[in-house]
Design a protein around this nucleic acid. Structure first.
Lengths: 336, 336
DNA sequence: CTGAAAGCGCTAACAT
DNA sequence: ATGTTAGCGCTTTCAG
């Protein structure tokens, strides 16, 4: 691979001039500029980003830290982040923490030996304590998704979705349809805020949710399925169920089928997320859609501005996007 | 961030000695070694990989090129690749080509300005012509998945799955169950080999598939759904359908439900891939499982050995893993 | 066993 | 308008 001094020698100039031609800095005579350009083409020369990075303390690299890319929630986000970064000649380093704080710490350690220009951190991947460490290194970073509003996080750039609102939307729609016997299936602790929005709307409508209408799941396989099963065996079955993600909604659909309940005739169901499968199963799932691509795009653009040392107003650095109700076939008025 | 010369000055040695301590090279007196180590800890010094890379022409970075991480086929593979690479202090650069040759070329261009130590290329992401270009740069690379056996590819390190065998397994199982009216839904051109295995077994059993038993889909939304619909309207319906991936199998399930056909009573169905959803829908999908994690692990380890300039025998550089039939609830003997 | 010195490829002041 | 020089942080001969 040709180097800059190869080009300089061949063109009869110094590397400084070649550098100026490439970076369009300084003033270079048109004639020499053309000559240098020709040599560059001839030698198929490309500037070496490692060397440039060493000089400028820049790497044109952003690290994306997330719990696990194999969790279906993240691929679309990662895809969009990469696409946006690419337009600015940035590359993405993929770092999974597998929900393991030890791996998260190790990831950060190993990133700190390599210059990266910025950090995009998805909620749930590393702890706030570790984020704190990175702050001290003055590395630009943007947090994504739901960081549970801890104090420290409030002062950091953050792009998230209004999950409380998501819960509200689900409750409002159930009420509109005329449902009165409701239940929610929620996975604590990260999804609790989604439930709170749901509960608040119901409370305001004069029908607060009792504890037994709230089913808590855990991350084990089939947990939502079992929760739904239990719900269906009650003497008074709910006519409408809100699950705090689509994954769990699918399990509820399965449980309903196994229990001989039809959706939406016997049971209305709303999920949250809008995974691609939501439209492909029967019935197609009504859900609260999260604007994932917008989230990814916004976060990446914010980070790139931070890296570019733009001044960013505090309000601009704390962005909350709105979810949207998508009505499909898993919801209907209750049978009378 | 402290540099090596900070450490050297503080320890009263030169950077060469510090370097030797860190890399455990050369011979360093135990006493000075301890002193240097103490200073390193005190200053929280970490070697700078960019500088080291400039010197050694190494970056401890591997690029992963794939069509799109948001395609559900890849996240698990990416996850595993990252995990294996991490154990060797390697990072993964995520590059989506979005099935667009122009983007693929652009990705390679921009990678070539940055030193990367190796390349992992999934089939379908870039063309063989572009691979050819990279070969000339003598960059270690490993191809993954099904490169359609082009001549050039045969000479390159490749880790793939025996997709022909996958088709055979599906056909064999249908025959065992006693099915005689079969059909296959296939998306050309990349899936054709999967179909060929299926066809060959049937031909050998004396019941070759006719053209009308072969439905070709395209990448548009719902293409397999429509194909299944058309199949179901025929005067003589097939009793068993093999789809060349699980995605399409799900669409067939939906189409069957919409047509009032029960699976497996009225129709047996086999997919290919074993996506996580396969176990969660009802009926749970019988499928030919691809060893994705093993594939990712094998490919990454092979690439790391290549990067380490290990001598690798041609047979070791061309690995084919075997798929496996996973019997679940979408298959049964035909009704008589 | 340790130090001195050169240099990886590039950019950025400062001269000319 | 172009050249000179220094140096980013590290590794690697080669001397001592």
């Amino acid at each position: 691979m040709a180097t800059m001094s190869d080009v300089a020698r061949r063109a009869g100039v110094t590397t400084a001039t070649v550098s100026n031609v490439i970076n369009k800095k300084g003033i270079v005579g048109e004639e020499t500029r053309q000559r240098v350009l020709a040599i560059i083409a001839e030698l198929d020369y490309r500037p070496n980003l490692v060397a440039r990075g060493l000089r400028q303390k820049l790497s044109y690299t952003i690290a994306l830290i997330l719990p696990s890319i194999s969790n279906p929630f993240y691929p679309e986000i990662a895809d969009e982040i990469e696409a946006v970064a690419r337009t600015q000649h940035y590359h993405i380093l993929l770092c999974n923490t597998h929900f393991d704080p030890a791996i998260g710490r190790e990831q950060l350690e190993s990133l700190s030996t390599r210059w990266i220009d910025g950090l995009l951190i998805a909620a749930g991947s590393i702890s706030v304590a570790e984020v704190q460490m990175m702050i001290q290194r003055e590395l630009p970073m943007v947090l994504c998704l739901d960081w549970q509003e801890q104090e420290l996080v409030k002062t950091l750039p953050l792009v998230t979705v209004d999950f409380f609102r998501a819960g509200e939307l689900a409750a409002q729609y159930f009420l509109e349809l005329g449902h009165r016997r409701l239940a929610v299936i929620v996975e604590p602790p990260s999804h609790l805020i989604r439930m709170e929005g749901f509960c608040q709307v119901l409370a305001q409508a004069g029908m607060p949710l009792s504890q037994e209408q709230i089913c808590r799941t855990d991350p084990t396989e089939g947990s939502a399925y079992r929760a739904a099963q239990a719900l269906f065996q009650r003497p008074i079955r709910p006519t409408a169920v809100f699950t705090t993600n689509d994954e769990m909604a699918l399990q509820v659909m399965t449980a309903a089928a196994d229990a001989g309940l039809r959706i939406p005739e016997d049971l209305s169901l709303i999920g949250l997320d809008d995974i691609s499968l939501a439209t492909r199963l029967r019935p197609r799932l009504t859900t609260i859609a999260l604007p994932k691509r917008a989230l990814a795009k916004t976060a990446t653009q914010l980070l790139l501005r931070l890296i570019g040392k733009e001044e960013i107003a505090p309000t601009e650095a704390h962005i909350t996007l709105l979810p949207q109700l998508v009505v499909r076939d898993s919801t209907a008025p209750p049978r009378t």
